[in-house]
Write a protein that binds this DNA or RNA. Structure first.
Lengths: 367, 367
DNA sequence: GTGAAAGCGCTAACAA
DNA sequence: TTGTTAGCGCTTTCAC
């Protein structure tokens, strides 16, 4: 490889170049420099050229922080708070938000919570101190207690993404959760004749878990499947939790012949457990779960699952934030994106994959 | 759900509470307020209490931007620049960096490049304007041309993560790439007897692609496998690219019986293509690739692959950045993390999975 | 122990 | 078309 130019890293005297350096060096006033940079008033082309030249020569870099302080307005930065651990599509969502934000000239300040309450609270505080223009947050467990109230009090435009809250009037954009799970259950019962269908739910204390649980109950009720507390377990939104829940289900006196999972991590756990025990899918146990992903078609038994539209969710989150910043008094919006049920073979179906669009139910659907 | 308390979002008059508001309200001077907030000089407990009280009552929130401007020192924010698209473990890395940063009281400013040169350059500029204390970047294609020189010139402490650069003396932490690929090739040849082993490489213009390509060449040479330009293709680091490359390989007059892939996205593409054509793995075509992931053991043919230690890479990236900020003149560090070869069945092996640690080769290994 | 005041780097009247 | 100057919200001497 080429080792020619070695730019030195981190010089000794980082004494930064300021606007007045540029002004002095180009023989104009700071205000002119400021205006040249911001294009905030007409300046003689010649002067402008001199200034630009000086900027180039001196390696001047605008200080956004100082500008934000002086302007006191938007900082053009928004905070994104979510857990990478519990969202396998974290990258997708962040990337979608970021793309939308970039188009608006905004930068993202990221806070990774790891689904920890204190960390989440701390992160939000930190972002608020950074004077972000708004916050996009996937509230973690018990966010209702501390984080969300703090956010509401701060008055900073906030949109909830993925997970929502029953206690605060925030904008929200997320996946429709009830119908898809009900559809999974119904499919298993109606087309494959299962009666004992188990459900392994995600982490407690977040809205998606509750909604999917409700979807399961709805599905069971609709198709008259067996209703038993023994058939629903918590998988704690982790692979290990999913595996453990699956194990306990299998060890039941009369184990279920079909399992519906509440999220991706749980599905991994369940499939690993089944695999470890040599239980064949779908012959011995059928599986269907929330969250589709690119490897699903390539599994031993191609997975039947619910695909979420993460890209739309991320993009809309930022758009809604923008609207909120413009009209703080508008009534909160609550948007649900439809899902697609990818029917492959883990549910018992044979043949090539099919997909069915699951529409969004009435957004006003009460608890 | 409970609809009792509706905190209003985005009040009309967001006129922020400042330090002097607190000062006035508690009957002290702004400097005292500043000192109680920062604990930067001894202040009478009683006074301190009054101030804290006023802060609480007024809902005052410290303005970090103003502080950064006044102090002129560290902003306690670092920029992280990488592509979510080309790194399936984006979330893991970011989360690891973030965890380390949080422990240091720093916040992450995220820039998602989507592997676009211009966007990358723009992002870096933006972060520099935000006066981040340092930058962690996974340089995209052609970063050597613009982004990296700009970074070098800026003097901002920078560490390269995952991908490196041959032209600039930056700190770097990434995966060992050569030996693992060589090991994959050797395994395919030595234990399974393949002679025509193809390689589908990732996106052009980034170091990992080149290194893995070199690893392939090394492996081929070591075990005397067939050396032919027809056997190496570019998969452009995308699923589609991988599928296309795989297709063209399969359509060869004498197609390879084994394929090694340069990254995760390509593996997905290859497996999809093989699946679509009804080609059985490993019976008809053996596959092994870079990048392990949690679903690998659950595929039709459990995937033999190279596991990278993303968590360590992310954590170390921040630690190295910290060291760089402390000692700007120290010689650049170049750290490679070892990988693990997960031997499952897609390579032709039968039975349960085994794993082999692939040590890091001499970091001084020249081009 | 506390306060006055001079900045930090930038913006934006206001005046010329 | 340009410069002067008073801030923005905070930190930090220096003096009391």
């Amino acid at each position: 490889m080429d080792l020619r130019r070695f730019a030195k890293q981190g010089g000794v005297d980082p004494m930064p170049v300021t606007m007045s350096d540029v002004a002095r060096s180009s023989g104009v006033s700071v205000s002119t420099v400021s205006h040249v940079i911001n294009g905030t008033r007409v300046v003689d082309p010649a002067t402008s050229e001199r200034v630009r030249w000086a900027i180039e020569r001196l390696g001047y870099r605008h200080n956004r922080l100082a500008r934000a302080v002086a302007r006191g307005g938007r900082t053009h930065s928004i905070g994104v708070v979510m857990s990478a651990r519990s969202n396998p599509h974290f990258g997708l969502v962040v990337s979608a938000i970021d793309a939308a934000a970039a188009a608006d000239g905004s930068t993202i300040l990221l806070g990774e919570t790891g689904d920890d309450v204190d960390r989440e609270r701390h992160l939000v505080d930190s972002l608020l101190q950074h004077r972000v223009d708004g916050i996009v947050i996937a509230p973690g467990p018990r966010a209702d207690r501390d984080t969300l109230p703090a956010l509401a009090k701060s008055g900073v435009p906030t949109v909830l993404v993925d997970r929502t809250s029953g206690h605060h009037r925030f904008d929200h954009v997320g996946t429709e959760n009830v119908e898809p799970v009900a559809a999974l259950v119904t499919h298993l019962a109606a087309v494959h004749g299962y009666r004992r269908i188990a459900f392994i739910s995600g982490m407690a204390g977040i809205s998606t878990t509750e909604e999917r649980l409700a979807g399961y109950a709805l599905g069971v009720q609709r198709c008259g499947a067996v209703r038993s507390a023994k058939l629903v377990r918590s998988g704690a939104s982790s692979r290990e939790g999913g595996a453990a829940a699956c194990a306990s289900l299998l060890d039941l006196a009369s184990p279920p012949r079909a399992i519906v999972t509440g999220n991706n991590a749980i599905t991994v756990g369940v499939l690993h457990e089944l695999n470890a025990r040599g239980v064949r899918v779908p012959d011995e146990v059928a599986v269907a779960g929330f969250d589709d992903f690119e490897w699903a078609p390539l599994l031993v038994s191609p997975l039947t699952s619910i695909a979420q539209d993460w890209d739309t969710i991320g993009r809309r989150a930022f758009e809604i934030l923008l609207e909120r910043m413009a009209a703080s008094e508008a009534p909160p919006v609550a948007q649900r994106t439809p899902t697609t049920m990818m029917i492959r073979n883990s549910c018992g179906c044979v043949g090539p994959a099919r997909s069915i669009l699951i529409p969004v139910t009435d957004p006003e659907r009460a608890d």
